[in-house]
Design a protein around this nucleic acid. Sequence first.
DNA 1: TGCCAGGCCGGGT
DNA 2: ACCCGGCATGGC
Length: 229
Amino acid sequence: MSSSSTLNDMYHALLGAFGHRGWWPGETPFEVMVGAVLTQNTNWQNVERAIANLRAAGMMSPAAIAAAQPADLQQLIRPAGYFRQKSVRLRRLAEWVAGFGADEGEAVCALRERSTEGLREELLSLKGIGPETADSILLYALHKPVFVVDAYTVRVLGRHGLIEPECTYYDVQAVLEDALARDVELHKDFHAQFVEVGKRFCRPRAPRCTDCPLLAVLGEPELDEEQAD
DNA sequence: TGCCAGGCCGGGT
DNA sequence: ACCCGGCATGGC
């Protein structure tokens, strides 16, 4: 059996169990970008607080964040953790976006005209934006067909033996992108399904997932390497 | 209470 | 080229 059909079967099993996820949660493309930075190694619930603070302060725009006092920005995003680092990362991102247009709408339109690879390189050149954050922005804010590989994706695939433990980010991404139709909505929703199944059934200390919808497709999961003892 | 959360960077081997 | 500590808050 090809890994292509396995991965597509996985998606349909998850879609059947959870329904269309409608990701990413965010009112505007720029808010999606902000969320992508704020959620780095951070619970989404904390990110929502920080986003609400930014909105309430009228700061959810590239120009406003680019012009903000560092201390003010830090206070607003404090609930999302790592607030000193993330305030710098947000400002650099905001300056980058603002460079593409007079307002958010114009900038985002200009960004969407550009090539995926060119955009990825520019995003990765911003300190504090790594592969996952860049790809989250590419997919969910700019609608480029890339697969976002996150901790849940790696854990779910790894536990079912579909990737090797030593795989890099881009190894895992290639497995998924090679197997799937080049479809933006599929890429968005499949990644969201990984998060959903990961949160519910693939926690670090809970290898027994008796009700996981993936059992019907993939069979019993394996132990994580560090749990295999 | 400790462990965990939708990473990434920089310095040390 | 790898490995590792640091970064920080809030929920369970």
